[in-house]
Amino acid sequence: MLRDYAPILVLLALIAAFAFGNVLLSDLLERKRKSVGKSEAYESGMQPVGTARIRLSIHFYLVAVLFILFDVESIFLIPWAVAARELAAQGVGGLVFLEVLIFAIVLGAGLTYVWRRGGLDWER
């Protein structure tokens, strides 16, 4: 079983060798010349103002939370999607579909709720 995944490790080794090898080569061959100007953050040629460690817009947090909710719900659909054809062949397709439909209605209700509360509007 786990042996099936072994070729991925081979690929990972190749990729890591390529990525780290090239960066290492670059670190060895580059020519370091430090200066104050170079180590400033780029701000269109002006002196950087303030810090970049600023508070984030709440929208991004909201999007992340919504993603987690819907992502988990879509994961519940995966087993059904794989089995749908076989269930239909066994004659229980309609019944299982009804159950999944109830789940989908809950999911849709959640989406409608978020939508109507303005959770999907970027600007308010």
Binding site: R85, A88, V100, L101, L111, W115, L120
Partner: peptide, 25 residues
């Protein structure tokens, strides 16, 4: 963001369940 959440997500959901209905029934 509006396109993703308000158009694509509902349409993709409906499409999945229509497909599911056809396959199941």
């Amino acid at each position: 963001m509006g396109l993703g959440w308000k158009v694509f997500l509902p349409v993709a959901l409906v499409n999945l369940f229509l497909t599911g209905a056809v396959v199941s029934l």
